[in-house]
């Protein structure tokens, strides 16, 4: 069964974004993505303070087999990174939506959320 929480928005390239109660955005990769990648052994995160554009390279995630780019679903400034992933990247496999988040940002344009996929639409992407 697919595991897609209902409170998230997605890019078709399998990144998720969650709007937190303080208006910041938490970003990670979907359960479907971690499953496709297999055992994740390395994560390279952006730097705090870095400005990101929507759908631009923001992080690198490497499984045993291959390296993949993570794109930021929204534009904004990075305010926190999940340093835990540097020593324990396998957390992305075990907890993609909770402990395995990548970074948080302050969005520069909340309107960009409308460009993202709903859980239902993302679910269809995963069917393909």
């Amino acid at each position: 069964m697919k595991n897609i929480p209902g409170d998230l928005k997605f890019l078709s390239s399998h990144e998720w974004a969650r709007v937190e109660s303080d208006g910041t955005i938490t970003i990670g990769i979907s359960d479907h993505a971690q499953n496709l990648l297999g055992d994740i052994v390395f994560v390279e995160l952006p730097e705090v303070g870095q400005a990101l554009d929507a759908e631009a390279d923001a992080a690198i995630v490497e499984s045993v087999k291959a390296a993949s780019d993570l794109y930021s679903p929204l534009s904004g400034e990075v305010i926190e990174i999940n340093s835990l992933l540097e020593d324990q990247p396998e957390i992305v496999n075990s907890s993609p939506y909770e402990d395995g988040w990548f970074f948080k940002l302050t969005p520069s344009d909340m309107g960009e959320l409308d460009n993202l996929l709903s859980p239902e639409d993302y679910s269809e992407v995963c069917e393909d």
């Binding site: 297999g38 055992d39 087999k65």
Partner: peptide, 8 residues
């Protein structure tokens, strides 16, 4: 088969 469970 590329893997059955986890490659590692």
């Amino acid at each position: 088969p590329i893997s059955y469970t986890s490659l590692i």
